[in-house]
């Protein structure tokens, strides 16, 4: 497989220069590196600019409702655990509308990978604050500046026991591709938050702004298995913003605990001649 095997013919409708392009390219690179075939991958998304990504790559795609990518992905993974399930979502879709599903799917710990395109603003609805917009940032709705504390999703994920918590930057394509690959390889729920400039509606968190602040975590000196250190690292924001694997802890996945890993994928079950007699005997 090479990059062209993942080429979609659908016309891309993102703004020129959008950070989403970087994520799309990194995802393709990661899939090529992992040796995946388009038919074995399912991309699930909700609504927003990030949610359009599955159309721009040749893979199976379920583009569902706003905020509801995670439950749809969870259902699909339970039905067919042989699919590599990746969710492309945004700060509004995943942290706002679908926040409850994020919490509970971290607990569920299915072997799925969530890529959150975090541009700290609402793009598709034209520039309102998102759950990650910086305090004080003014918009057409938040006319006196944002007064709600930004959501600390990575810290929350660590607290909930998510086994793979990471941050990437859409401009650093190779590093992001590596990060996505690591997330897919992790056997459990993987959260990859990607800093992704919105060139149209976010006038503060620009390429320049991020590039000045972003740094890569030094894998020689940093132990991503140390939960307390990881919590501290996840909280770094401002002049210095860390990227890389912030927390990593292997554990039992939903597929292990539910027994799904011991049986063929549910879609393979033959259902034409199910025998109820044992149930009827038990109930009578």
């Amino acid at each position: 497989m090479n990059i062209n095997d993942f080429k979609s013919n659908d016309e891309i409708t993102w703004c020129p220069g959008c950070g989403d392009f970087g994520i799309l390219n990194s995802l393709k690179k990661a899939l090529v590196t992992l040796g995946k075939e388009p038919k074995d991958i399912l991309l699930v998304s909700g609504i927003g600019q990030a949610a359009k990504l599955p159309h721009y790559i040749k893979c199976n795609c379920f583009n569902g409702l706003h905020g509801r990518a995670l439950p749809a992905a969870a259902g699909a993974k339970i039905a067919n655990r042989s699919l590599t399930v990746i969710i492309t979502t945004g700060d509004g879709d995943c942290y706002g509308e679908g926040g409850n599903h994020l919490i509970h799917n971290i607990r569920r710990n299915l072997d799925i990978t969530v890529i959150v395109h975090n541009n700290q603003i609402y793009g598709l609805t034209k520039g309102q604050a998102s759950p990650t917009t910086d305090l004080g940032y003014k918009t057409k709705v938040q006319t006196n500046g944002v007064i709600l504390e930004p959501m600390h999703a990575l810290e929350m994920a660590i607290t909930l026991g998510c086994g793979f918590v990471s941050r990437g930057y859409s401009k650093d394509s190779d590093h992001l591709a590596w990060l996505i690959g690591e997330g897919i390889k992790h056997k459990g729920f993987s959260l990859i938050e990607v800093l992704q400039p919105c060139v149209t509606y976010n006038k503060k968190n620009t390429y320049e702004w991020y590039s000045q602040r972003v740094y890569k975590i030094d894998s020689n000196s940093y132990n991503p298995g140390d939960k307390a250190a990881a919590f501290q690292k996840a909280g770094e924001w401002g002049d210095k913003i860390p990227t890389g694997v912030i927390y990593r802890q292997d554990g039992e996945s939903y597929e292990d605990r539910s027994g799904l890993n011991n049986i063929p994928p549910l879609v393979e079950e033959k259902i034409e001649n199910i025998d109820l007699s044992a149930c009827l005997k038990e109930l009578s």
Binding site: L42, V44, F62, G64, L65, R68, P71, A72, A73, A74, G75, A76, K77, I78, A79, N80, L83, L266, V267
Partner: peptide, 9 residues
Amino acid sequence: NMIIGASFA
């Protein structure tokens, strides 16, 4: 949404 995802699969 979970049953829709599972059914899609």
